[in-house]
Every structure is written in structure tokens, then in C-alpha cells.
Write a protein that binds this DNA or RNA. Structure first.
Lengths: 234, 234
DNA sequence: ACCTGAACACCGTTCAAGT
DNA sequence: ACCTGAACACCGTTCAAGT
């Protein structure tokens, strides 16, 4: 009924940065710093304003609302990812390079995990990466819709892996929670499921999480790439 | 320094439901209704209290904080998923059945998408599903850590696919946004990337989204299963 | 044992007013 | 053109007080 329009920062021209005063870049940079330091819940318009020695509401001159701010910082994240230039017959390299890079970037900026999917990836950096990824799959031999399918499969795997990883890290980080107490917790919760419990115990996974997770990520990634390869041959 | 403990609803005995008054189940049921009707941002302790004809803060008798409430509703969602009983040589069926079921459940309860990864899946329903899934991969022939790897790969793919799907739906749903305006928006944003633009145009994807997304999901799922199968043979 | 209302410390956003 | 403070309508949570 309302007919509310779909809107995005990327549709509006940014206010031209004239005087050396506040600018959109400056705001985004400060926002990323705040996010890195205090997480997604730590970013408020008031705090960001304060950090910039400005009134809380000054920001609304540069940005229509908080969602637009999030769109901007989200694209910033995409800018940190590397997508190796696709070369003939080496699409695995492009895909693998992108996957590892994206994972690292999100692990470095954990707040980004909760933005994935929630914020449309329509910024220049996100589009650039997607386009390059699509090119790699095209060179690989995918056609039409299947190019998108392949890109989506890859990014879905990376997103779906890294989101829970970050969540786990955050649970751990909340004021020096020790792994021991989590382990006990999980063991108790899992007491009714002997298979899970058994595997928890036999794993070194609780003493060497990061390494195990790296292996896990590579394992699944290899599976996804193999599976895509198989679709190509057919 | 603080030594804050990891905590979860699943570690505390629930208050025994004595009188026919409020109970944890009742609260959870009301919360799910509220979430289905108004989304994750629509759930507040005050509104939930009102819905139950109770003061906003009465809920804190049954639940330590909002996070615990979210743990409860999240496990409710896991309870709606079906994981076909694994049978010899048919692990693909179990995996595929689970994948489609989980996707449908999250599409039906879109708020759950933002809970994935954020809320630890330690409830009885989540653990039950995981255990059954693990059993299927064990029967399939995976060993030790690889059982977990395989489960994680599968769920990562499903999560990573469905989270952006839901986000897209929500963007569309916000007060009758018409697809036409989104299409124009995206086309403009993508103007610098002829390959993407071209593919957008050649696709029927914008006129028949749900069907295209079903195909996309099945395509990627098949790739993931093939890839896991390949890891098995080696 | 269970429920209440007042209070605290926050939010995002609007808007009339300033320079 | 840019920034401000006051105000509005919300939050989650604590706590002393009620029954």
C-alpha cells in the first residue's frame, strides 16, 4: 500500500566533499574503526558522531540513515578481498584465492559476518569482485545461468562457513571466556548423543581450533570446487 | 579479566511449570508467533509481555535474558526440520532431504536467518539433527574428523544460500516494493559491469525468481554432494 | 513462587533552529 | 551548506516492592 521504494546509497550521488570538513570517506573510515574496536552493536550514530567530534545527528547530512552507513562499510570490506585475475584453465586458483581471502577478511572484521546477506552487495567493490569471479567461471566453460549458479555456490559455501566461525569466536571473546568451560558446557549438552560426544573427544579440535578450522575450510572448499568441475564436464 | 562465563539456556534447568500460569513453552510459542508476524526486530520483551497479558519484565522469571529466549526459539526452528533416517548406501537422500527441509523452514521463518551462527545450536532439536546427519556420513564411509567436515560443508552451503535469499525477500517485502524498481536500481548499479548486466538481462531470473532460486539451490547442492562423494572415494 | 512498575542507560530518527 | 540540541518513540535490564 505504502509503495515504499527500494533504496540504496549507491543510487544517490554522495554530497560533494567541498571544504576539508567531514566527508563520506572520513565517516566510513571512522565507522570501520569503531566496528573493529567494538563490534556491530558498538556502532551507534551517537558514538560515531562523538568520535568525529560532531553532534550525533550531523551524520544525517552525509547519509540518509544507519542502513546506508552499513552499506558503505560493507562495501569497504569487499574492497579488502582479492580475486586473482582469471587465467585460462586456472579458474580453481581464482575461486580458491577469493574464498580464502574473503574468509580472512571477515575473520579480521567479525562484524561483517552479520552484514552478509542483510546488506545488498551493490557497491563498486562488491560488484567488481563478483564480475571478476563470474568471468573466471565463464572462462572455465560455464554458460548463461550456470555462471551465476557457480558463483553463488562458491560464495554460499564461504559465507556459510565463516558466519558460524565468527560467532564461535565472539562467544569465546566475550570477556575472556575460557575454552574449558565451553567444552564442559557442550559436553553436557551433548550427553544424550554418544556419537557426537565421542567425536568431540577424539578430536584435537578443542585444543587446536584455528588449525582444525583451516583444514575444515579447505576440505569443504575442495569438495565444492570438485563438484563444480563435475558439473562442467557434463 | 572479568572471567565472564559462557552460558546457555540449555545448561540451566527450566523453572518447573507448576500452576497453569505462564510456562516456558507458552512463552516460546508466543515468541515464534510474534517473530513470524513482525520479524526479528519486531520481537521485544515488552511486546512479548503484552502479548501474554503480562508485564514486560515478568519474562525474566523464565528466561535470564533475551539471548536465552532466542536460543529457545532457534531450537524450535531446528525442530521443524526433517532429517531422513540414514540407510545404507543412501546418504545422498539424507543430505538432500535435510538441505531442502532446512531451506524451507528458514524461508518460512525468515527471522531465523539472522540467528544462524549467532546463536549456538546446542538445543535438543539441533543436536538431534546434527547427530543424525553425522550418522549418515559415517555410514557413507567418512571417518573421524571428516565426518564433521562433511556435515559442516553441507550446512555451510545451505546457510550461505538461504541467508541471502531471505535478505532479498525482506528487501522486497518492505511495504510492497515492486520488483521493477529494484531491477532498475540494480541495473544502474551494475552499469559499469557489462558482463553482469548482460546476464541479468538474458535471465528470466527477474520475472520468475522463486523457480530460478530453486534450481540454483539444487544445482549447488548437487555440486556439494558430488564433491563430498569424491572425497570419499579417495 | 511469581509478577509488577519505576528507573537507568541506552537506541535511531525528525525537525526547527542556528551559523 | 552544514551542524546543533531537544524531543519522540522506542529498546534490554535491574531492582525494590508487592502478592
Amino acid at each position: 500500500m505504502t509503495g515504499k521504494q527500494f533504496s540504496s546509497v549507491w543510487l544517490r550521488e554522495p554530497r560533494p566533499a567541498r571544504s576539508p570538513g567531514r566527508s563520506r570517506e572520513e565517516i566510513v573510515r571512522a565507522a570501520v574503526e569503531l566496528l573493529d574496536a567494538e563490534g556491530l552493536d558498538g556502532l551507534s550514530m551517537r558514538k560515531l558522531g562523538a568520535k568525529l567530534d560532531a553532534g550525533a545527528t550531523s551524520l544525517y547530512w552525509y547519509v540518509a540513515n544507519k542502513h546506508e552507513l552499513l552499506e558503505l562499510v560493507y562495501d569497504e570490506i569487499w574492497g579488502e578481498m582479492t580475486v586473482p585475475e582469471p587465467r585460462d584453465g586456472r579458474w580453481h586458483e581464482t575461486a580458491r584465492g577469493f574464498a580464502h581471502s574473503m574468509r580472512q577478511v571477515v575473520l579480521r572484521h567479525p562484524w561483517a559476518a552479520r552484514l552478509i546477506g542483510r546488506i545488498p552487495a551493490l557497491g563498486p567493490n562488491a560488484l567488481g569482485s563478483s564480475a571478476r569471479l563470474a568471468r573466471a567461471f565463464k572462462i572455465a566453460g560455464f554458460r548463461g545461468l550456470e555462471i551465476d549458479y557457480a558463483v553463488s555456490t562458491l560464495t554460499a559455501y564461504v559465507f556459510g562457513t565463516v558466519i558460524p566461525e565468527v560467532a564461535y569466536n565472539e562467544t569465546m571473546a566475550e570477556g575472556a571466556v575460557d575454552e574449558q568451560s565451553v567444552r564442559e558446557t557442550v559436553e553436557r549438552a551433548v550427553a544424550d548423543h554418544p556419537e557426537i560426544l565421542e567425536r568431540l573427544r577424539e578430536n584435537a579440535s578443542f585444543t587446536d581450533t584455528e588449525q582444525v578450522r583451516e583444514m575444515m575450510f579447505s576440505f569443504g572448499l575442495a569438495a565444492v570446487l570438485d563438484g563444480l568441475e563435475a558439473r562442467l564436464v557434463t
